[in-house]
């Protein structure tokens, strides 16, 4: 087995271990019901994290994720009040997300500025736009929301796959296809592995960078749509600091923050680990959300150190 799969294996191992720990502590934990709920409750984070995976694979970072989720949410809600069909709004918002991401990617490559700073400005801008749209929490009342909430596919056992989870899995399939079966995906890995080499090997770095952040924008906007439909409301503060969870999910999913190594599928498990932790803590009752943050921090630390030593000991950066 190639060493580069080691982080992914570690991710799945951690996921299974947490799941078994939960099973040994609580009677009803090891069930498709819990699994289905975790998938549905964390669908928007995982969707956003899938987009972030592309960005991080290329050696970049996208801080505008949380604000995008909030902005899409308030737009969905306000346009709903104006009588738009949620699906029409969703289509418009997703197009907006793609364009916004592409713009960020263009600025990053053209001005040669760290992605961190550009997407930070992106974060401010979108959050500000949220407040321009509305300052209140606005409900989404369209019938489609009820349809969305009730649609489900039964799983073996008592569990069900809710619409959010279905959308998430479809988004994941699309991402796996893009990342692993297109030239674009191949280029993403190359830029993350070594941007200068990639350029010398003939990869169009600007076009690819724009594409990467456009994909990031697409997935954050999609996450915003799912979040809005899931909570059936839009709130201008929604999604604050969600970019951190998304980045954490990507890292826990075995993608190196330095870029170039990782798999999109890992992000699903990374997001599920975060979901499992909160579920476990909620099951426990006496623990609170402090432990969610601390345990994600500790796991993050463990994975970052693991990656650090993988890179240096297995010489993934080459011998020349």
């Amino acid at each position: 087995m190639s060493k580069k799969y080691l982080p992914l294996v570690a991710t799945i191992a951690v996921f299974l271990a947490l799941f078994l720990v939960g099973g040994s502590m609580y009677r009803n934990f090891l069930s498709t019901l819990v699994l289905g709920n975790i998938l549905a409750d964390n669908a928007f984070i995982i969707i956003a994290a899938i987009g972030a995976t592309f960005v991080i694979l290329s050696g970049g970072i996208d801080l505008s994720i949380g604000s995008m989720i909030g902005f899409v949410g308030v737009c969905m809600a306000v346009l709903d009040r104006m009588g738009w069909h949620p699906l029409a709004t969703a289509a418009v918002m997703i197009c907006f997300g793609i364009l916004y991401g592409a713009l960020q990617g263009f600025i990053i490559d053209y001005c040669d500025i760290q992605p961190f700073i550009v997407t930070l400005a992106g974060l401010f801008l979108l959050r500000g736009l949220c407040f321009m749209v509305t300052l209140d929490s606005v409900p989404i009342r369209h019938d489609f929301v009820d349809l969305y909430a009730s649609a489900k596919i039964p799983l073996p056992g008592r569990g069900v796959l809710r619409s959010s989870a279905i959308v998430m899995l479809a988004a994941l399939a699309l991402a796996i296809f893009i990342a692993h079966f297109t030239r674009f995906g191949n280029n993403v890995y190359a830029i993350g592995g070594d941007k200068e080499s990639a350029r010398l090997m003939g990869v169009n770095v600007r076009r690819t960078t724009i594409g990467i952040y456009a994909i990031g924008g697409f997935y954050s906007a999609l996450a915003g749509v799912v979040y809005a439909l899931y909570t059936s409301s839009g709130y201008p503060l929604a999604g604050s600091t969600l970019e951190l969870s998304a980045i954490a999910a990507v890292v826990l999913g075995g993608t190196l923050l330095t870029g170039g190594v990782g798999m999109v599928a890992g992000t699903l498990f990374g997001g599920m680990i975060l979901g499992l932790i909160s579920t476990l803590i909620i099951f426990h009752g006496s623990l609170n959300s402090a432990w969610i943050m601390i345990s994600s921090g500790v796991l993050l630390f463990a994975f970052i150190v693991l990656h650090r030593f993988l890179v240096s000991s297995f010489d993934l950066r080459g011998t020349s």
């Binding site: 951190l244 402090a290 943050m293 630390f301």
Partner: peptide, 16 residues
């Protein structure tokens, strides 16, 4: 950026 992200994620939890 990665190293300080760890405390950024965990720090508020430690405060709580």
């Amino acid at each position: 950026i990665i190293a300080t992200l760890i405390l950024m994620v965990a720090g508020r939890g430690i405060g709580m």
